[in-house]
Simulated assay, not measured.
Amino acid sequence: MTDPSQIQKARDVFFAHKGLPVDQIGHSILRSWIRCADMGLDAQTVPPVSAPTASEIRLLHEKHEALRRISRPELDALYTEAREISGIVILTNAKGEILDAVGDPTFADKAAQVALRPGALWSEDGTGTNAIGTALAERRAVVVNGAEHYFQSHQVLTCAATPIIDPRGAIIGVLDISAPASRENGHTIGLVRMAVEQIEHRLFRGGFDGCQTLRFQTDPNLLGVAREGILVVRNGIIVAANRRGLSLIGRTWDRLDELHVEEVFDIHPGHLASGRLKALDGRDFFAQVDGEETGQALPVGPQQSLEDIELSTIRQALAAHSGNVSAAARHLGIHRSTIYRRIPNA
């Protein structure tokens, strides 16, 4: 967790207009503070809080029922983690409107006092620097601790959030764990990332009309589960992907609709098939192509639960670091206690 005294020094410099505390605060937090100041937000005031009616919340839920349904397993799985740190798990839409909040009932009541409740909007333009709004603005996982929040009234919180990105690269929501600022929760961002990875993987389940779905990884045991790379190909052009797929081929979302699959892999146009797949940079992958002959999705490995993914990921990290729990925890962005809870004999 960031040193509170360093955060306060950064606030003293920034809000007194003495300069930019680039060495005292994380760059994503500083960029958010700058955006908030540019929008004219006054950190000394209490941000306005709207109170949506039951009817408005019901309409919000109906509009985003698909996102709520596909995210429910992860909310349920993170519920226990949230309660252990006296916190809550939050799901929002792409605007930052809270759809669901579950967790410790005592903290949930306190959180509602600062508008961490269904229907409330937590985008930066209304609520300043916060994990949900800043994750939306930065398009990446964000942790905001205590006084890193722009508004003083939010400094009672510590939050970790990751945006949920659809196969076309659009943000469709945010998953967040928020807890009292007094609680150590440095491990939660790793858990939230893994949960979002599972949600995003589930978005590819139904297949895509007129397309081939390429699932690939360096380890064949990872095919069919959330840690596989996925590219969706139409007429030889990559039109959708998950984050891991783009990371494996070293590309970004802005290459969708223009990148030909033969620019990445050593294949002849129109000959994408399951089996071994070699990248043009020489790397070898194992691949499975859904719908390569019939246009129907082929069966893939069983969908893993979040608990299964956590255990598998932790074991891989421990193996990669020769059983060193501290090194594995740093690699995963989680606390050592999380590893010991999952694998008592680690």
Rank of each mutant, 00 (worst) to 15 (best):
D109N: 09
S123Y: 03
H260V: 09
S28P: 03
A43D: 09
A120S: 14
A147K: 13
D176V: 08
Q198Y: 04
Y79M: 11
T313C: 06
I85S: 07
V142M: 12
V46G: 00
Y150T: 04
E293V: 13
I177L: 14
Q303A: 13
D284R: 06
F151A: 00
I237H: 01
V233S: 05
F285G: 04
R251Y: 06
L231S: 06
I343D: 08
H321R: 13
R244F: 08
L222A: 12
D42K: 10
P73N: 10
G133V: 04
L332P: 05
I25C: 03
I238E: 07
A181K: 09
E84C: 03
P302S: 12
L116Q: 02
G103H: 01
A54C: 02
Q24K: 13
P302Q: 13
E97H: 04
W33D: 08
D12T: 10
L203M: 15
S86V: 03
P118L: 03
Q44C: 07
S50E: 10
D100E: 14
T162F: 03
G146I: 00
I343G: 01
S32R: 07
E200M: 11
A170W: 12
E62I: 00
A94I: 00
A170R: 14
G19I: 06
R205W: 05
I25S: 08
I343M: 06
R315C: 07
M39Q: 14
Q217D: 15
T213R: 11
K63G: 00
R341L: 02
Q217P: 02
A101N: 01
M194K: 15
G275P: 13
P105I: 08
A346V: 05
L78K: 10
D23H: 11
P21N: 02
K278R: 15
H64R: 10
G275Q: 07
Q24E: 15
A181V: 13
F208E: 04
D266R: 13
R58H: 07
G146R: 09
E258W: 10
F216T: 03
E228M: 12
H27F: 06
Q113C: 05
K9V: 06
G96P: 00
V264S: 06
P220L: 01
Y340E: 09
D281M: 05
A297Y: 01
